[in-house]
C-alpha cells in the first residue's frame, strides 16, 4: 500500500532521515520506535508529505506522492493523520470538525461531475451532501460515545475526548491508512487507555496503521512489525517478539532498557 524508497530528509544542513526503505502492506500495523529526536515524526510526516522528502519516493496506491506535480490533497484524503496535540479545529464544533473535509471533498467531486459525468452519476445538492456527512459524523460520534458533545467546541472536551474525536475525524474520510504521531503522549495518564482502546478497535477491524508511540504494551499487543529508527535510518525491524525478546543492535538494547 505504501512503499518508501530511499527516503531522505534534510532541514537546512541537518540530515534527519538518511535513506529509509520500508514497505507497508494493506492491513498491517506498524509501530515506529526510536529515541527522541531520531526522526520518527519526520518519517511519519514524510509519508503524507506534510514534510516534502528531500529525495526518494513514497509510492502510495501506485502513485509517487513525493513527486511535487501530484495533487497531494487528493492522496492525503486517503491517509489519515492523528497528532500528539490533536489539532482539532478550534473554531468549529465537534461535529463540524468531523464533517468539514468530507463535505469539502464531496462538493468538489459534484462540481467536477457537473462538467463531465460519463457514468451518469446522481448529482447531489449541497443540502444532501451535508445531510449525509452529518449522518456519518453522528454515527462516528456514537461509536465513541460522544454524540452529546456534537455541538460543543473542542476547548470544552478533555484530552482523551479530543484525541478520540481527532481519530474519528480521520475515519470520516474512509482512509486507507492512518498515521499516528505519539497520540497519547500529551494525555493525562488516566486518559491514555480510552485512546489506545479505540486504536485497538481500529486495528482489529483491519485498518492499516503506522503508529509512533512509546506505549510498549500497545506495540506488543497490536503491532505486526516494529521499526526502530535511530540516527535517521532503520536500525532494526521485526515482529514485537523479535525486537523486544531478542534485540540485536546495542542502541536498541539501550533504548529498551530505558523504556521497559
Amino acid at each position: 500500500m505504501i512503499e518508501v524508497v530511499n527516503l531522505t530528509k534534510s532541514f537546512k544542513n541537518v540530515d534527519v532521515l538518511k535513506g529509509i526503505n520500508v514497505t507497508i502492506n494493506k492491513g498491517e500495523k506498524i509501530v515506529v520506535l526510536g529515541p527522541s529526536g531520531s526522526g520518527k515524526s519526520t518519517f511519519l510526516r514524510c509519508l503524507n508529505c506534510m514534510e516534502d522528502p528531500t529525495s526518494g519516493s513514497i509510492i502510495f496506491n501506485g502513485v509517487d506522492i513525493a513527486d511535487m506535480s501530484v495533487n497531494i490533497n487528493v492522496h492525503r484524503q486517503k491517509m489519515g493523520m492523528v497528532f500528539q496535540h490533536f489539532n482539532l479545529f478550534n473554531n468549529k464544533t465537534v461535529i463540524d470538525n468531523i464533517m468539514l473535509a468530507p463535505i469539502y471533498v464531496e462538493k468538489k467531486r459534484m462540481r467536477k461531475l457537473r462538467f463531465s459525468n460519463p457514468n451518469g452519476e446522481e448529482i447531489k445538492s449541497t443540502k444532501q451532501i451535508k445531510a449525509e456527512a452529518k449522518e456519518n459524523a453522528m454515527k462516528l460520534l456514537k461509536r465513541i460515545g460522544l454524540e452529546e458533545k456534537a455541538d460543543v467546541f473542542p476547548s470544552q472536551l478533555s484530552g482523551g475526548q479530543k484525541q478520540r474525536v481527532a481519530i474519528v475525524r480521520a475515519l470520516a474520510m474512509n482512509p486507507d491508512v492512518i498515521l499516528f504521531d505519539e497520540p497519547t503522549s500529551a494525555l493525562d495518564p488516566e486518559m491514555v487507555g480510552e485512546v489506545l482502546e479505540l486504536m485497538k478497535e481500529l486495528a482489529h477491524e483491519g485498518m492499516t496503521m503506522v503508529v509512533v508511540t512509546h506505549e510498549m504494551g500497545f506495540a506488543r499487543e497490536v503491532a505486526d512489525r516494529v521499526i526502530f529508527i535511530d540516527e535517521g535510518v532503520i536500525a532494526e525491524e521485526g515482529t514485537p517478539e523479535e525486537l523486544f525478546g531478542n534485540p540485536q543492535c546495542p542502541r536498541l538494547k539501550e533504548f529498551l532498557s530505558k523504556v521497559l
Partner: peptide, 26 residues
C-alpha cells in the same frame, strides 16, 4: 497555532480552504 494548518492539510483540505475556513476566522 500552526497545528491548525497541519490539521487541515492532513485531512486533505487545500491551503486556501484551510486558510479561509480555519486560520483566518481564528
Amino acid at each position: 497555532d500552526p497545528g491548525q494548518m497541519e490539521g487541515g492539510r492532513a485531512v486533505g483540505l487545500s491551503f486556501s480552504k484551510t486558510m479561509l475556513s480555519i486560520i483566518i476566522p481564528q
